[in-house]
Design a protein around this nucleic acid. Structure first.
Lengths: 163, 163
DNA sequence: TCCTCCTGGTTGACATGTCAATCATAAGAG
DNA sequence: CTCTTATGATTGACATGTCAACCAGGAGGA
């Protein structure tokens, strides 16, 4: 990628970009999460789970399929489902086809909360993110984010001393 | 801001940009944090604290000044300092001028770990972030991130129904 | 002095994430 | 059929974050 020879540490310009990026993302995450909480009582984690279940056949999914859908580790999902189950938003049912497995289903209460939360979600994303950018910037953000994801996925596991 | 009339929800293009952005940031955070942990045993939180203390006069700061420096809430900092103190990286001393206050000082062990971690930090940022982007993209990311931060700071607290 | 209010900081309860260990069942080898 | 191994999912221990309550000490006025 960059080919500036034997440079080992980022320049101050590069570091400034990094800091701006990571802090912006952090502030955005915090703001969205707090606004969602206020307006609907649903966290982004809850929202991801409810969305995947809402779109699923029969409004239910096997635990591991749900984890794949939303890109979570299974243990993370299991803990989160425990909390959501306690709140009555989802139900866990034994799976006949495979007695190890579990079906995760959205409850009526979960569906109803999801509808409210969807509206709030869209409002919040528009107000905090979309409205801050023009169409060109939006496309730029999308493209660069996709590039970063590709880069992290292809490079991320390798922790070698890369010089 | 946007003036497309009565639109209430983001378009699918806008939503796609949002998803790409927030997931890229999340994956980046996770990858950096995991690489830092592997290479130096220091989390980003630890790193922020150690950096601020290293740069401070006498390598120590009042707790609230430290919180301001790194932009954390005081309770978050207090919890984190408790964990770092247990590991021997920082020390809390009573403050003579104001008996309510506390001086937070970096220990010798903390300083030494910080030097290691700095090198790892720079390597990781370069490998995972800087190397993914050319100079133009880097500047674009910086500018858009700054714009997003400004927008969130000016809009964030206001949770009104914005149409 | 005494009373009230402000301020620096800590605490407890809880939500969220990660990792390694565990448990039960399924699947395949013999 | 039994033993070993793989798989689906949960658990426990801990790090990290947020919020609201608290506590102790300073500051100012009557």
């Amino acid at each position: 990628m960059t080919t500036s020879g034997t440079r080992k540490t980022p320049t101050s310009t590069e570091l400034a970009a990094w800091r701006e990026y990571i802090e912006a993302a952090e502030e955005m995450r915090r703001a969205v999460s707090s606004a969602m909480q206020d307006q609907s009582g649903v966290s982004s984690g809850d929202y991801s789970v409810l969305l995947a279940l809402s779109e699923a056949d029969g409004h239910r999914l096997r635990s591991s399929a749900l984890a794949d859908d939303i890109g979570w580790e299974r243990s993370r999902l299991s803990h989160h489902l425990g909390r959501m189950e306690k709140r009555g938003l989802v139900a866990r049912d034994r799976c006949g086809e495979d007695n190890r497995g579990a079906w995760i289903a959205i409850t009526a209460e979960g569906s109803s909360l999801f509808r409210t939360a969807s509206a709030a979600h869209f409002r919040v994303i528009r107000r905090l993110f979309v409205d801050a950018l023009d169409d060109g910037e939006l496309e730029g953000v999308r493209a660069v984010s996709a590039a970063l994801r590709r880069h992290v996925r292809s490079t991320g596991g390798n922790a070698s001393q890369d010089d």
